[in-house]
Simulated assay, not measured.
Amino acid sequence: MNATPPLAWDEDLDCWVVADPRLARQVLHHPGFTSGTFERSFQLYMTEAAREEYRELTEFLRLWFVQTDAPEHTALRRPVQRLLSASYVRSLAPRVEEITDACLDALAAGPPYDVVPAVADGISGRVMAHVVGIAESPQTLHRWARTLSLFIGAMYRRDHAAEAHRTMEEMTEALARADAPKSFPQETPEDRARTTATWAMNLFGGLETTSSLLASTVMDALAEPAVWDAVRAQRPGAAEEFVERVLRRRPPLRHLGRVVAYDQELAGESMRAGDLVLVSLTGEALLDEPGGGACPVTGDQHLVFGFGPHYCVGAPLARLEAAVLLRRFAARFPDARLAAETPEWGPNLSYVGLDHLYVELGV
Rank of each mutant, 00 (worst) to 15 (best):
L207M: 08
L175G: 02
D191P: 05
E187L: 10
P181D: 04
M171I: 02
E190C: 15
M171R: 00
M219F: 04
S211G: 11
M171C: 10
F204L: 11
N202V: 14
A176Y: 08
R194Q: 15
Q186I: 07
T209V: 08
A200R: 01
M171W: 00
T188A: 07
A178Q: 10
T210M: 03
A174P: 04
R177C: 06
W199L: 12
M219P: 03
L213M: 04
A215P: 00
L213I: 10
P189F: 09
E170I: 08
D191Y: 02
T217W: 05
T188S: 12
T196F: 08
T172F: 12
A180D: 09
T209M: 07
R194F: 10
L214D: 03
S212P: 03
A200N: 04
L214K: 05
A197I: 04
P181V: 01
G206M: 02
A197C: 12
L207K: 01
K182W: 14
L214V: 01
Q186P: 04
A178C: 07
V218Q: 02
Q186N: 13
S183Q: 15
T198H: 10
L203G: 06
A215N: 01
L213N: 03
F184C: 07
E190I: 13
T172I: 11
T210V: 14
R194E: 05
T188W: 06
K182Y: 14
P189R: 09
F184L: 10
T198C: 11
R194P: 07
A176E: 08
R194W: 06
T196E: 12
T195V: 05
D191K: 08
G206R: 00
E208L: 10
S212C: 09
A180E: 13
P181A: 08
P181F: 09
T217S: 11
L214P: 00
V218H: 11
T172C: 12
L175S: 02
L203C: 10
S216I: 02
T209R: 08
F204T: 03
T209Y: 00
S212N: 04
R177N: 11
A197P: 04
A176Q: 10
D179H: 15
Q186G: 09
G205I: 04
D191F: 01
F184S: 03
A215W: 02
L207D: 00
